[in-house]
């Protein structure tokens, strides 16, 4: 399993992988926002947390179709399926690799991008915390969507259509942590729900995703 992980990571970091791409996309969303809504701090400041969460979510979505598509095309997914590792394990490792190459860099970059959007100073820690807690769920749910569309040619748009509604709860609770933090409200419930979604996704989604992969390879 560690071999799969290192292989996936190496493939992603090499040229043509999605490694830098989603980070660039995130940066573009953040840079474009002031052009759309205006540069005034009193406009940007209250929406910064939400924009950063939305940008991170969309950037995450961008690289989802790479999770299985390349392996499906060159046949290595069939080989993995016959390997002595359960499919659930493969799916989890794939999601972990996706998180390490998108979710983690996004989380680390978000505070820097927060400066661009006049994010209130008190919210930097909360933003990082909520992204760190929430992005694993995004990767996991996205892996499920990628598994559903594994055999479909040009399934990228369909994948977004399927995955976006599933991202809604994570987005709401994640952005809510930042919003409530800025307004000085209690953040514990939103934070716990966010952590709960992530824990639940990691625990249960591998089974659904593995079932979908098995169907897709049949």
């Amino acid at each position: 399993m560690i071999a799969i992980l290192t292989r996936d990571l190496r493939l992603a970091i090499r040229s043509g992988g999605g490694f830098g791409l989603s980070l660039m996309f995130f940066l573009i969303v953040v840079v474009l926002t002031p052009f759309a809504v205006g540069p005034e701090p009193q406009i940007l400041s209250p929406i910064a947390g939400g924009i950063l969460w939305l940008g991170a979510m969309l950037a995450c979505l961008l690289s989802l179709d790479r999770i299985f598509a390349l392996d499906y095309e060159d046949g290595s997914l069939d080989l993995l399926a016959t390997a002595p590792i359960p499919m659930e394990g493969i799916v989890t490792v794939k999601a972990l690799a996706h998180w390490l190459t998108t979710g983690l860099p996004l989380t680390l970059a978000a505070p820097a991008f927060g400066l661009l959007l006049d994010l209130p100073f008190s919210a930097f820690g909360l933003l990082t915390l909520s992204l760190a807690l929430g992005t694993p769920a995004l990767s996991m749910i996205g892996t499920f969507g990628a598994a559903l569309t594994v055999g479909i040619k040009r399934g990228g748009l369909l994948l977004s259509l399927l995955v976006l509604p599933l991202y809604v709860p994570t987005l709401i609770f994640g952005a809510e942590v930042v919003r409530r933090g800025i307004e000085g409200l209690s953040i514990a419930p939103a934070l716990m729900m966010l952590a709960g979604i992530t824990a639940g996704s990691i625990a249960l989604i591998p089974f659904a995703a593995a079932a979908a992969i098995r169907v897709g390879l049949r």
């Binding site: 509604p165 599933l166 809604v168 709860p169 709401i172 609770f173 419930p189 939103a190 979604i197």
Partner: peptide
């Protein structure tokens, strides 16, 4: 996720 979203919207 529908149930989860419903709860999230209420929240």
């Amino acid at each position: 996720f529908a149930l989860l979203s419903r709860y999230a919207f209420l929240f």
